[in-house]
Design a protein around this nucleic acid. Structure first.
Length: 567
RNA sequence: GCGCCCGUAGCUCAGUGGAUAGAGCGCUUCCCUGCGGAGGAAGAGGUCGCAGGUUCAAAUCCUGCCGGGCGUACCA
């Protein structure tokens, strides 16, 4: 990354200054290079002189003047084509400005990079799995699940851009009592469709969508299942029920551009005997013991846990935790992912230390399991909270919200907030504001670029060819402040990707997208692109537009949103 | 009770120990015989919950308190 390069340059300067005695030899950590808030303070700034000054005081007891140290460092910066102006400012900051000639050259590099623009090599091909959504397969996704989907998917996009190999997985809880209840409800609805008296199970799923699902069963099976004895019918219905609900979930998630590489069945862990196997491994290690007729995982042996946890109840039924242990064993020990990210809503927080205890019990480094917790979405309509319960059939589905406010606005709104922040989502407000949404500001800028390019094409400019080194001569004409600001902002993308991975949250992306669109609009205001009287400058600006198109389209893509050519 | 998270502009929220704390929406006033006005410019609006501490420097780190959310099952 550019920032790393600058950091290397500064390290060299410090070492050179120490070598010739301009600076005392004290050791410090790698200097921080950051982007100042104020544009007057340059493109990058470093506090290395201040850090060095306090290190000198600590090691030698002598007071050192940070500004003098900064000056010494500055005069030892090796020559390079990257840095233009350098200045010492404030209490001892060193402010760096990128050379305009270097910035101009980056326009070509951006266009050539295309949809790989902004990629970094942080991950170095490590295999990561992101498991997200994993909602109970008992009906449509409610809106809270949409936040999980948006977070997990955008994080996956960003990880891929940062050089990780990512698998997106949905864990299908098709083994527990909830799914059984779902199948029984479906069976009752199916019989009702065929005109039979069939009460819904106690605590069954009340929602109308169950009737729709039953209709699909009847379409596929006719009345065949009604002829079978109840137990046999339920067994036959099981795979059908699963397929119907998963298809529904898949379609809903596709509405907001979320797709999974793998749908992993909880039941398969039992069918393969893996749950028993893994519990046996832990029993042999003394991490699982019998007490009061139940099997307990001895979580309290491990940090952060105060109590043990039941894995097999005294009635012989395993808990969800039992299959979860086997599931994570499978992820790390059989499928051999380097790192696994689980995206969970904050109400599962109590489960986090237990899972890390499981990691230790299995002899795995706990840091390889990253559990990303996100806060709840409180759905409000006109100031009134909308309560959600899937079993009672009272909930707002992702499908409904997408129909009201559109997929891109949904993604943008859910993505903009940091995971730990609770979101209050007012449907009435979202609909009212959907035309004034920031997402359209970004997309509009992209569409505007397409329109400019079309206009240029009509005027005879070549805007579709692969540009080569010959354009460098034209690019030197990009000297307007708005042009250089646009280039600088585009070059920030790799840092934004790095930051999102570092924070394990992509919520900085929408903010960055807004800024990128803004600097493009400022350029558009100040700089006429297509001007037949100035062909060289027009060519340069058209290339700049193409670069901006690449950058906008890339950031929209990372956020899982479309980059429309017209709106 | 204990644990985790949150408290920043009227509202919804960003903010990486750094220089003058930001955005969107809303509000006020301006700018179209110019490539797409879904745009741009200017402005009002803040004791960063409160009080201490750490240091060259704190919205950011530490401690305590006050509010709010979540968790604390042989549930998932």
């Amino acid at each position: 990354m550019l920032r790393d390069t600058l950091q290397q340059v500064l390290i060299q300067a410090v070492e050179a200054a120490q070598a010739d005695g301009s600076l005392p030899r004290v050791s410090i950590r790698a200097p921080e290079v950051q982007r100042p808030r104020q544009p007057d303070h340059g493109d990058y700034a470093t506090n290395v002189a201040m850090v060095l000054a306090s290190a000198v005081k600590r090691e030698t007891g002598q007071r050192a003047n940070p500004r003098q140290i900064a000056q010494a460092i500055v005069s030892h910066i090796p020559p390079n084509g990257l840095i233009g102006q350098v200045e010492v400012a404030g209490p001892g900051f060193i402010n760096l400005r990128l050379a305009p000639e270097w910035l101009q050259r980056q326009v070509l590099a951006i266009v050539q990079a295309g949809d790989r623009f902004g990629n970094i090599d942080r991950g170095q091909g490590q295999r990561w799995q992101v498991e997200f959504v994993s909602a109970n397969p008992t009906g449509p996704l409610h809106f809270g699940g949409a936040r999980n989907a948006v977070l997990g998917d955008s994080l996956s996009n960003v990880l891929e851009a940062a050089g990780y190999q990512v698998q997106r997985e949905f864990y299908v809880n098709d083994a527990g009592t909830q799914f059984q209840l779902f199948v029984e409800t479906l069976y009752a609805r199916y019989l009702q469709l065929l005109g039979q008296e069939a009460p819904l199970p106690e605590e069954g799923y009340q929602g109308q969508y169950m009737v729709e699902y039953a209709r699909r069963v009847r379409e596929q099976e006719g009345d065949r299942l009604a002829q079978l004895p109840r137990e046999e019918a339920l067994r036959a219905l099981w795979p059908l029920a699963r397929a119907i609900v998963l298809q529904d979930l898949e379609e809903e998630l596709a509405l907001i551009q979320v797709h999974f590489d793998n749908w992993f069945s909880e039941q398969s862990l039992y069918d393969e005997g893996l749950v028993d196997q893994v519990l046996e491994i832990l029993r042999q290690r003394g991490d699982i013991v019998e007490r009061d007729g139940a099997l307990w995982f001895r979580a309290s042996k491990y940090p952060g846990n105060e109590k043990d946890e039941v894995v097999v109840r005294s009635n012989g039924m395993p808990t969800y935790f039992a299959s979860d242990i086997a599931y994570h064993y499978d992820k790390f020990c059989r499928r051999r992912f380097d790192v696994v990210v689980d995206v969970w809503s904050v109400d599962h927080q109590g489960h986090v230390p237990r899972m890390h205890a499981v990691m230790r019990a299995l002899g795995l480094e706990p840091d390889r399991l990253i559990i990303l917790l996100y806060n709840l979405v409180k759905l409000v309509r006109g100031g009134q909270e909308v309560k959600m319960s899937k079993r009672a059939g009272e909930f707002v589905t992702l499908r409904e919200v997408v129909a009201e406010v559109g997929p891109d606005a949904v993604r943008f709104m859910l993505l903009t907030r940091s995971p730990e922040a609770g979101i209050e989502f007012d449907l009435a407000l979202a609909v009212a504001q959907s035309n004034e949404n920031p997402v359209f500001y970004v997309q509009y800028s992209h569409a505007r670029i397409c329109s400019i390019l079309a206009k240029a094409r009509a005027a005879g400019f070549a805007v579709d060819e692969e540009p080569g080194p010959e354009v460098q001569a034209d690019l030197q004409r990009l000297t307007h402040p708005a042009e250089l600001d646009l280039i600088r902002k585009m070059l920030e993308l790799e840092e934004q990707i790095d930051l999102a991975v570092e924070k394990r949250s992509p919520h900085n992306l929408p903010h960055y997208a807004m800024e990128l669109a803004r600097v493009f609009n400022l350029f558009y205001r100040d700089c006429r692109v297509v001007d037949p009287a100035e062909p060289e400058r027009s060519r340069a600006r058209l290339l700049l537009c193409r670069a901006a198109q690449v950058a906008l389209s890339r950031v929209l893509g990372l956020m899982g949103m479309s980059a429309p050519e017209s709106m």
